[in-house]
Design a protein around this nucleic acid. Structure first.
Lengths: 192, 192
DNA sequence: CCCGTATGCGACAATTATGTCTCATCCGGG
DNA sequence: CCCGGATGAGACATAATTGTCGCATACGGG
């Protein structure tokens, strides 16, 4: 057997990142399996997309776990929180090819199961941001949800920048972290 | 006559922002015109999308003009460049509902005419960023293209944040500008 | 008031995508 | 070597979408 179910999902995400409107036939062709096989693994297009969404959210959840987000929140120290924040962003960038699907597709908002899953992760993001604000790691004068959304948007920036060759892959993590933490203004100047 | 061509484009953009996969029938229905009328104004779906893309890029170009980007680059002073930068971002946020279409849809990358238009605007963005770096307004240790892409991604953050009610509309501009210029780290701490 | 224009409505053919099915083939384990 | 399960190829019916057309009608200016 050439590809198992997981490999098909991975390849499908990769292919749909390049062409978000691809049909089942195009997806199958791009992956290198027949359309019939695709339908044997996923009863419908919706089922395939649901599994891809689940995969993307799993990647997101794994980033939380790997970075020790929960523990850092419980700990509450600035050092732990900042380390978790950096590790978390780094993990998201590394896995952005699979996670990126969640960035673009509105399908997640439709399926109730994924919606709950997504909400849970967003809440944890918010908790992390709020804890980091309390610990003095992040500035307190922005809504905690904005932090997660800003990272989310900058991940799209990274994806597009890499796609266009505007930045080097090895610089992606530094650029995202520097931008979200310190911004792009020249350091010497101002700050009222 | 209920709606002219321009109004239809505006309404179509608005509707497709909410449901990017809407069919011609759904678009027409959402706008409040018949499918036939839609086809009378736009010979094909592709023609409609091309016009929407053009509109989005026009908004972008207008933001450049209103902010005096070209003049600020020619002037080269830090004050003019920073003012143009702020005004430019502000304008993009204000018009984000119509410009937002360009943020998401990959159609622009396909049509040669829009591609050239888009490239031109991107180049001007890059020139602005580079000039701001030379003038000491923006930090010089990031690729100039990254600046534009970061703003682009944060505009998506703003759109999503507003959609979810995570931030207030009147805070959008401040949050985007603050984030892109100074970042989200607490000001007092670190900076090696 | 009248007429031209634009619109809505419905029908239509053509195309495309989807999901199911059958059958031949291939491939690996026993 | 043989067999069972998985795959590829293709046919098929169904549904959705697209683009076109004809016709009736509503609207608005002259």
């Amino acid at each position: 057997m050439a590809l198992n179910r997981d490999q098909i999902i991975t390849a499908a995400i990769r292919h749909l990142n390049a062409d978000p409107t691809a049909s089942m036939a195009e997806i199958a062709d791009g992956i290198g399996v027949s359309r019939a096989t695709l339908h044997r693994h996923f009863s419908s297009r919706e089922a395939l997309f649901a599994d891809m969404g689940r995969r993307a959210l799993d990647v997101w959840a794994r980033a939380h776990r790997v970075a020790g987000v929960e523990e850092a929140i419980a700990d509450g120290s600035a050092e732990r929180l900042e380390a978790a924040l950096r590790r978390y962003v780094s993990e998201l960038i590394t896995q952005s090819e699979e996670f990126g699907f969640a960035l673009t597709d509105s399908l997640i908002a439709v399926l109730p199961e994924l919606q709950a899953y997504s909400r849970e992760l967003e809440d944890r993001d918010e908790a992390l941001a709020a804890a980091a604000q309390r610990a003095g790691v992040l500035r307190p004068d922005v809504p905690p949800r904005w932090v997660g959304n800003a990272v989310y948007g900058l991940l799209i920036s990274v994806r597009d920048s890499l796609r266009n060759g505007d930045i080097a892959a090895r610089d992606a993590e530094r650029l995202l972290l520097e931008t979200v933490l310190h911004g792009l203004a020249a350091p010497a100047k101002e700050r009222p």
